[in-house]
Design a binder for these strands. Sequence first.
DNA 1: GAGACTGGTTTGCATTGCAAACCTTACTAT
DNA 2: ATAGTAAGGTTTGCAATGCAAACCAGTCTC
Lengths: 98, 98
Amino acid sequence: MTQPPIDRLLHEPARLTIATLLYAVESADFLFLLRESGLSKGNLSSHLSRLEAAGYVAIEKTYRGKTPMTICRLTMEGREALRRYRDQLKRVVAALPD
Amino acid sequence: MTQPPIDRLLHEPARLTIATLLYAVESADFLFLLRESGLSKGNLSSHLSRLEAAGYVAIEKTYRGKTPMTICRLTMEGREALRRYRDQLKRVVAALPD
DNA sequence: GAGACTGGTTTGCATTGCAAACCTTACTAT
DNA sequence: ATAGTAAGGTTTGCAATGCAAACCAGTCTC
């Protein structure tokens, strides 16, 4: 056996959750992700930043009326990465006993 | 969506590799794990310690002739944990798109 | 304008993963 | 004897992480 390749960025459950949520939609705002992910605000914010730094997520800050709104989308790269991770994970599961 | 339960100890690829290797056998020594896992010695040593601290692995230090030998086994708890993790991972994969 | 709320970001900190450096014992050569 | 090397691991040092508490800017209410 050897170490299987795995995308460590998406291997973190919190970020996988975010990516999966974003995969299903064209875009989502911070509060939607906050509700759906169950993460704390700080956590969500920092994981989003990391996904953005990796080019997986695009973040746009705008306003809904007078209150700020952060809109997040999964980039093409992010979508491909999620599919790749899914395949990597499938291989990991397949290599597990039983 | 909410955060799925996942065993963080086994979620680390290095430790999952170790556990999987040990699952297949009754016991294995350090050098076997070293070769098969592809981990560095230091890494293998510290991950084994963490698995031992969690009760997943039992470690016995003995001698092969005159040279020290570290024998590792997956405990029943460790075996159950690995099966549980496999099931958790299956659910994660199933929840992923496509 | 004091206080509270909204929508986030930053800070502080304990935990991690990693490999380089180290340790101990045994063997070998000089 | 002693210097050097190898085997079998463990410990150390450090950068990177995950997390939530604390913070901040703008808005609304009283």
